[in-house]
Structure formats: structure tokens, C-alpha cells
Amino acid sequence: MWFARKEGVVRRLVRDAGHLIRPALVLLAGVAVFLVVRSAIVPKAFGQYGHYRPGALALVRQRPIAYAGQDTCVVCHDDEATARAAGKHAHVACEACHGALAQHADDPAAHVPQLPDVANLCRRCHEKDAAKPPTFPQVVTAEHSGGMACNQCHQPHNPHL
């Protein structure tokens, strides 16, 4: 008796609410398609070292090296390195002013670097600006040099007069 009543309730529920299964199935189908696409697209080793594709590391390694590093520079340019180490620019890396020079380090004769454009290079850091700390050396270049290049008075590697 109880069982028959229960069966009747279930049958009624299936009849009147059966259509609600359909949007759920559509949603499930969407989720299934998403999971299939995801497993096909996402590289297998994703997340091996962190939240990225490990193959990206090999791609980055394949890029040509641009900077030689100042340890390489000082091997040949020891005069400049000594002068720089004694002055205020001791912590400015060679290639910060001279540009990326890995090619020059590999083959100095074939790749001769150009000298920096002093007129613009120095003022990148030393142009007067109220927001810079007052102890930082800074000048209004238009008034300070009268059009002369900075390195006519200053030694760039050890910038005293």
C-alpha cells in the first residue's frame, strides 16, 4: 500500500518535472564539451613548476642573450671599471648607459658599439625635478651647460669635475 503510493508520487514527479532534466542535461553537455576542449588545449605539463607552461622556459632560453653583464665588460675595460668603482657611478651597470652589448662581448671586432648620446643620456637621471630627493645631483640642463656636452667637464665613469 505504502509502496504503491510512493510509486505513484514518483511517477507523477517524473511526469510533471521530467522536463527540468533537459536544461540540466544541456548544462552538463556544455560542461562536458568544455572539459574535452580543455584537456585537448591545455598543455599536458601545465603547472609542473608553477602556474605556467613549462615549455615556455625552453622558449625563453632559446632567445638570444642581449646583455653581456658587467663581469664580462670589466675583463677587457679594466681602466673604466677601476674609474667607475671609485666614483658615484659604482652601482650603475655598464650596459645601463652603453646599451645591451652581448654581441660585442662575443666578437668585439665585428660589433663595435656606438658611444652614448651624452646630451640626452645624462639628463635622463640628472634633469632637475622637484620630486627627486634633494641630495640627488640634478641640474636644469638648459641653464647649467650652455649647450656644452656633459663629458666636456665631467668624467662619465667617475663623474667629478
Binding site: 511526469r15 510533471d16 518535472a17 521530467g18 522536463h19 527540468l20 533537459r22 536544461p23 544541456v26
Partner: peptide, 18 residues
């Protein structure tokens, strides 16, 4: 319709509740 044509008053009552 997603293949369901059941719009009986009982089915609509359930729709309303859901």
C-alpha cells in the same frame, strides 16, 4: 523547448516553484 512539450498545469506549477 529542449524537446519537452509538457505544459500541463501541474508541470507549470512545478516550473513556478523552481
Amino acid at each position: 523547448t529542449l524537446g519537452s512539450y509538457n505544459v500541463s498545469p501541474e508541470a507549470r506549477r512545478i516550473d513556478d516553484k523552481v
